[in-house]
C-alpha cells in the first residue's frame, strides 16, 4: 500500500507535547445496556526500539512537506482535499462536510452489542490493541464492567468511529484494566479457498504421530520472553553505543520526523495512562513491558518529557493550533 503512505499526515511530534494533561486518541462512551461509561482511548503498543529520525548528512532535522504539482508551491494541510479516482479515471472530490455526513451519529459511543467467549475470536482478527481509561466520574461503572467480564470470561463486541474509520472492536478485561482491540472485518480476511490453497488431503496417521512427538518435545506452558525480544534493536543499539563512545556522528536535531511509519508513535501515552489509572482507579497501578519486570519509572519519564518539550515552547500558539486541525483533516478517509 505505498499509495496510502504518501497520503498520510506526519505523525504528531512528541516534542510538541508540553502540556501535562493526558492526550487521548479518542474520548467517548461505552454503552452497556443503558449504562454509560465515559472513557479515554490510549495506545497500548510502544514503538519498536528501532525507530529512527530523518536527518541530512550534517544532522539537520528533515520533515515532509506537500507541494502542488502544478504550481510547485508549498501547501498547508488546509489547502488539501481528498479525491477518489474512479475506474474510468474520473477524480471525485469528497469534502470534509461530506466525510462527516457519512460518519455515523454514534461516533462518540462504543455500544457493546454482544458478549462472546474470548477463545472464539481467531488470532487472524486482531489488529491493534488500545487501553481504555475511565474518564470523569466513571470509575465505578468501569470497574463493574471489568469485573463482570473477568468473572464471566467473556469479551464484548461492538463498533465505533475514530478519525473517519469505523472499527469493529473487542473489549477485553485484563488485570483490572479494559483493553480495546480493533478487529478486522470478515471481508478483510481471506480464506484458503480464495487464496487457492489445495484441498486438504488425507493425512497419514504415522506422520501425525511423528509431528506430534516433535511438538511435545518442544512444548512449554508459557512463553519465554527472551525469545520475543527485539533482536534488531539489540544490534542497532550496540552499533549506536559504539559510535557514541567514539563520538562519531553525534548530533542534536530538533523536531526531525520519523524515518519510517512505525506503529504506536508515542511511548509517552503509556505513561499518561498509568497516571490516569492511578488518579481515577487505583494508586497501586504498575505498568511494565513484557520484556522487563522493571516497572516503568514515572518520574524519569516525566523528566525526559519535560526536557523534550522545553524547546517546543518557543513555537507560537497559533502555529500549533493550525497544525492540530490540519492533522485531523488529513487523516480522514
Amino acid at each position: 500500500m505505498p499509495s496510502r503512505k504518501r497520503q498520510r499526515a506526519p505523525e504528531p511530534e512528541p516534542e510538541q507535547d508540553s502540556s501535562p494533561r493526558v492526550r487521548s486518541l479518542w474520548s467517548g462512551t461505552i454503552t452497556f445496556g443503558l449504562v454509560s461509561i465515559p472513557v479515554d482511548l490510549l495506545t497500548a503498543v510502544r514503538p519498536r526500539q528501532t525507530a529512527m529520525k530523518l536527518v541530512d548528512s550534517e544532522g539537520h532535522a528533515l520533515g515532509r512537506q506537500y507541494h502542488c504539482s502544478k504550481e510547485g508551491k508549498r501547501l498547508d494541510y488546509d489547502d488539501l482535499v481528498r479525491g477518489y479516482e474512479t475506474d474510468d479515471g474520473k477524480m471525485v472530490v469528497i469534502t470534509d462536510q461530506e466525510f462527516e455526513s457519512v460518519a455515523p451519529e454514534m461516533s462518540a459511543d462504543i455500544e457493546l452489542r454482544s458478549f462472546v467467549p474470548m477463545e472464539q475470536i481467531p488470532a487472524l482478527y486482531f489488529q491493534k490493541p488500545y487501553f481504555l481509561a475511565p474518564a470523569g466520574k466513571s470509575a465505578k461503572a468501569y470497574v463493574l464492567l471489568t469485573e463482570t467480564m473477568a468473572r464471566t470470561g467473556r469479551v464484548a463486541i461492538g463498533s465505533f468511529v475514530m478519525r473517519g474509520h469505523e472499527y469493529l472492536v473487542a473489549i477485553v478485561a485484563d488485570n483490572g484494566v479494559l483493553r480495546l482491540d480493533t478487529l478486522r472485518y470478515a471481508d478483510e480476511i481471506r480464506t484458503p479457498e480464495s487464496i487457492g490453497l489445495p484441498q486438504r488431503s488425507k493425512v497419514a496417521a504415522n506422520k501425525v504421530t511423528l509431528f506430534s512427538k516433535q511438538i511435545e518435545a518442544l512444548t512449554h506452558k508459557e512463553l519465554k520472553i527472551s525469545e520475543l525480544e527485539d533482536q534488531d534493536a539489540r544490534k542497532l543499539q550496540s552499533l549506536v553505543e559504539a559510535k557514541q563512545r567514539e563520538r562519531d556522528a553525534v548530533i542534536h536535531p530538533k523536531g526531525a520526523e520519523a524515518a519510517e511509519d512505525t506503529e504506536g508513535g508515542e511511548g509517552a501515552k503509556i505513561i499518561d495512562l498509568m497516571e490516569v489509572l492511578r488518579k481515577s482507579l487505583s494508586k497501586s497501578a504498575v505498568a511494565r513491558t513484557a520484556e522487563t519486570s522493571q516497572p516503568i519509572d514515572l518520574a524519569e519519564r516525566r523528566a525526559q518529557r519535560a526536557a523534550r518539550s522545553a524547546p517546543a515552547k518557543k513555537k507560537s500558539a497559533p502555529a500549533r493550533a493550525k497544525r492540530k486541525t490540519a492533522r485531523k483533516r488529513a487523516r480522514r478517509g
Partner: peptide, 26 residues
C-alpha cells in the same frame, strides 16, 4: 488480509492538482 479500505489521492483544493511530497530541511 485483503485491503478493503477506500484510498484517496491528496489534491490541492484550488486547482485539484495532485500533491507531491517533498523532504525538506526544517
Amino acid at each position: 488480509i485483503e485491503d478493503r479500505s477506500v484510498h484517496f489521492h491528496l489534491l490541492h483544493d484550488r486547482d485539484r492538482a495532485p500533491v507531491e511530497q517533498h523532504i525538506v530541511r526544517k
